[in-house]
Nucleic acid binder design. Structure first.
Lengths: 136, 136
DNA sequence: CGCGAACATTCCTGTCAAGGAATATACGAA
DNA sequence: TTCGTATATTCCTTGACAGGAATGTTCGCG
């Protein structure tokens, strides 16, 4: 029982949050491919133009996060998307949906105020337009 | 015009994808706090129990990603949530929503098949339950 | 003008993760 | 049984990033 609790804690530590797993572009590309249809590892290697061990390691991370399942077909391993864990990301976004839907007018007013400030030729170095490079 | 194109490319390179920005838990906590209301930097420092330069650096990353805006109030800087860039994450999730809604039965059947395999006392080391630690 | 407060930036260090190369393991075919 | 194929794992290197400490910059107040 005690050992079980320890193992559970270790699992939590070793597992990465879904967002951290998705932060790596290669893994998102893998998920996008699996969204179309199941893929064997070799197919993913070809589609991603990556080396086989790299793909294999990303798949291991995705398995650990529960985002894919795998079934053996002779010596091939066929990977399948398991989208359920993405729901936690969807849930995290829920209050932000309200933020971008409900506060759009407030944001527009804020940005308009900034524009007015710019029109007065007052530089505002701290409030950067997202398309503008940070001048560091 | 040519210089503009170069600058745009540099911007793309320097900017991080929204997902990469969100992969760091401290930045998500900042956004969660700003979802409640605007905060000055010092308030974020207190709420997060982090050192001020660390918070400041995260805010810089969030500004670069366009996820926050800032307005000066004397020597204080008040940060405001700007949720719009999260829409690209929401858009990325759209086809996956269909995947977890529409394919639930297919996944259930898949998992049931795995359970049946387990019942035959055939270990399946590659298809891990998400709550189960990877035995590496 | 000097000082304190608030915050941004710089320098440095340590940790972690991605990818390459080599290697190990499992399966099917001959 | 051997061999080729497919894939997982291990070891190593490198670079990116988070956070601490120090420092710089800006503003308001007296």
């Amino acid at each position: 029982m005690f050992a079980t609790a320890i193992m559970a804690t270790m699992t939590e530590v070793l597992e990465r949050q879904v967002l951290e797993v998705l932060a790596e572009p290669s893994r998102r590309r893998i998920l996008d491919l699996l969204l179309e249809r199941d893929h064997a590892v070799g197919e993913l290697v070809d589609a991603l133009a990556m080396r086989q061990p790299s793909v294999s390691k990303h798949l291991k991370v995705l398995r650990s996060a529960g985002l894919v399942t795998v079934r053996p077909e002779a010596q091939r391993r066929v990977y399948c998307l398991r989208a359920a864990p993405l729901q936690e990301l969807d849930e995290w976004l829920t209050p932000y949906r309200r933020a971008w839907a409900g506060r759009l007018d407030a944001l527009e007013r804020h940005l308009d105020a900034l524009d007015a400030l710019d029109a007065l030729d007052q530089p505002d170095p701290l409030d950067l337009d997202p398309s503008q490079e940070d001048p560091t």
